[in-house]
């Protein structure tokens, strides 16, 4: 247990270090972004004097290291600053959108988990049959087709024309009804989940094939256990080891891929806000938004590492 704790502490420290490095990169990249927010605010009236005045007002004329320390100090103490363009508190802009993106990500994640594992298991059990080939084909399409294409196809099929069964855009808060809320999440979550389902399905199939060919499964069959019990009680537990880690990693992918999906579905999430803020040179919002995505990704990786190390008794922490 001591070694496990030490191992977890090391992984956590590594994650913190990664996030610190990410903060430096994010800060550096946003400073290097061409153009200035002053031009966004002033438009075509941006002469040198006016730009200078705006930069001074926003503190952009200070040395970079001061700006960074000021910013990172604020991030750690919960003061995320103000948007340069709307002057709203960044936290009040980002947090609600993060919640909405998280709602979308969770629904997509549940789909990835359920369909990825179920379809991967079926493909493994029906290995080398038509069903296996079909599953393989679908997974190739899932990893090959970009999300914006998937999104537009889903809209065309299920939200337009004769089959207008789902809303094609927007968001309704849960307080306005569970069904309206969920119905607005279905199409974007499917678009977000397809890639993850494909990855998890392939990983699950691979793991299950190996598990189903193992000695202990053969022993279980010889003992007279039903095939269902063999699959669920023995093969699945071991076959899912790597799928679980892929699942954990998919949380990070999801938050990142939502950028495109939120644009297509006009979903008011964090991804859309980041795009808008990049176009408007709204640096405080861009910095926080990207840092949040990086944090989710890092946490996903950390969870994957922890889960794998805990679930696989063959791993020696020493």
């Amino acid at each position: 247990m001591r070694f496990l704790a030490l191992y977890l502490f090391k992984r956590f420290s590594y994650t913190v270090g990664v996030l610190f490095a990410v903060s430096l990169i994010v800060f550096g990249v946003t400073q290097a972004m061409p153009g200035t927010v002053a031009h966004t605010i002033l438009g075509n009236l941006a002469n040198e004097e006016a730009v200078k005045a705006i930069n001074e007002q926003l503190g952009l004329n200070r040395p970079l290291y001061i700006q960074y320390l000021d910013w990172i100090g604020g991030v750690l103490t919960g003061d995320w600053g103000q948007s340069f363009t709307s002057r709203q508190q960044v936290s009040s802009m980002v947090l609600p959108r993060l919640v909405r993106s998280a709602e979308l990500a969770v629904i997509a994640f549940l789909q990835i988990g359920f369909f990825g594992i179920v379809l991967g298991t079926i493909a493994a059990v029906k290995r080398n049959t038509f069903i296996d080939s079909l599953a393989g084909g679908v997974s190739y399409i899932g990893v090959s087709v970009p999300e914006f294409v998937t999104s537009l196809v889903l809209i065309a099929l299920l939200a337009q024309g004769q089959w207008e069964i789902l809303p094609q855009s927007g968001y309704v808060p849960r307080s306005e009804g569970f069904i309206p809320w969920l119905s607005h999440l279905i199409l974007p979550s499917i678009a977000a989940a397809l890639l993850g389902i494909s990855h998890v399905m392939r990983q699950t199939r691979s793991g299950m094939v190996e598990a189903l060919q193992s000695e202990y499964v053969r022993t279980a069959r010889l003992k007279g256990m039903s095939e269902t019990k063999v699959i669920v009680k023995h093969a699945l537990r071991n076959g899912l080891l790597e799928s679980i880690t892929v699942l954990a990693l998919s949380m990070g992918w999801l938050i990142g891929s939502l950028v495109v999906i939120e644009e297509v579905f006009a979903y008011p999430g964090l991804g859309r806000l980041i795009i808008l803020s990049i176009n408007a040179q709204d640096i405080p919002v861009v910095q926080i938004g990207i840092l949040i995505i990086a944090t989710v990704y890092s946490i996903g990786n950390l969870c994957a590492d922890i889960l794998y190390s805990v679930m696989d008794p063959r791993i020696d922490y020493e």
């Binding site: 809209i155 939200a159 337009q160 809303p167 094609q168 855009s169 927007g170 579905f265 006009a266």
Partner: peptide
């Protein structure tokens, strides 16, 4: 309301959103 994607904006009008 803002609809960044033109086709979605058109669909929203047709659907009555």
């Amino acid at each position: 309301s803002t609809y960044p994607e033109v086709s979605t904006e058109v669909s929203a009008l047709k659907q009555g959103t």
